[in-house]
């Protein structure tokens, strides 16, 4: 039993290292080849975890072997457009100039319900709002609304939009995030004075975000029983 536990821990570390080496893209938006590698890695890790008869090296070598192939393939794919098309496929235009391409839908085996769902997730609730919908190689749908439904930009309206910078969390669960302070030009003293103005103590703050312009949002901790 203890051996199983130790093997599980080791293989867990191996899988984490493998996925980290493959890169962050692996987790969020997987291409077909990456999905295959991820499924295979989970299977490969499970076998030596459960079967104590098998040497763990078999699993580890196979996992790292896949990681190597995946990285090498991604490098080759970056250099060769032809291979990229073969391995990852190419984006497909599902709605072209407001017209649903039914042949493409059939070819890709996408039902109208699937399309509806994906459009809703993209913030569109009616087909006639869409100018273009493109099925990306990672399976996600990108939507461009019809021009008259797009809001005007600040540039089009000749309005100056001040750069707020990146809003950062400056207090998280009652603790000041020191590394975020320089990003929003805040200091610990400034935070304490803001808290004082709001009659709050540091430990009462669940989250506080701030931006470069000095705007801030404070969310108080919920008291037990609330």
């Amino acid at each position: 039993m203890l051996i199983t536990l130790i093997r599980t821990i080791i293989l867990y570390v191996v899988v984490i290292v493998g996925v980290r080496i493959m890169g962050k893209r692996q987790v969020g938006e997987m291409q077909p080849a990456e999905l295959v590698v991820t499924i295979l890695i989970s299977e490969l890790a499970a076998i030596p975890m459960q079967d104590l008869d098998r040497p763990m090296a078999n699993g580890v070598i196979a996992i790292f072997g896949l990681v190597i192939f995946e990285i090498l393939l991604s490098i080759i794919i970056m250099k060769s457009l032809k291979l990229r098309r073969i391995i990852s496929g190419k984006p497909a235009i599902i709605i072209n100039n407001g017209v649903i391409d039914q042949h493409i839908l059939k070819e890709l085996r996408i039902t109208i319900d699937d399309l509806n769902e994906d459009l809703r997730q993209a913030g569109v609730f009616s087909f006639d709002e869409v100018q273009f919908a493109i099925l990306e190689t990672n399976g996600k749908i990108s939507v461009l609304k019809k021009p008259h439904l797009l809001g005007p930009t600040a540039e089009q309206m000749h309005v100056e939009n001040k750069d707020k910078g990146l809003p950062c969390t400056v207090i998280c669960d009652g603790v000041i995030e020191e590394h975020s302070l320089p990003l929003v030009s805040f200091t610990a003293e400034k935070i304490h004075s803001i808290l004082e103005q709001n009659q709050l103590k540091l430990k009462d703050v669940f989250i506080m975000t701030a931006d470069k312009l000095g705007n801030h949002v404070i969310v108080k901790k919920q008291k037990k029983g609330n």
Binding site: I21, G23, A57, F64, V67, I68, I71, L72, I75
Partner: peptide, 19 residues
């Protein structure tokens, strides 16, 4: 990442040969 791949390749080759 390429260095990591290279190190892994060497390690795998070493383990396989040793085995």
């Amino acid at each position: 990442r390429l260095w990591a791949v290279l190190i892994l390749m060497v390690l795998i080759a070493a383990i396989c040969t040793a085995g």
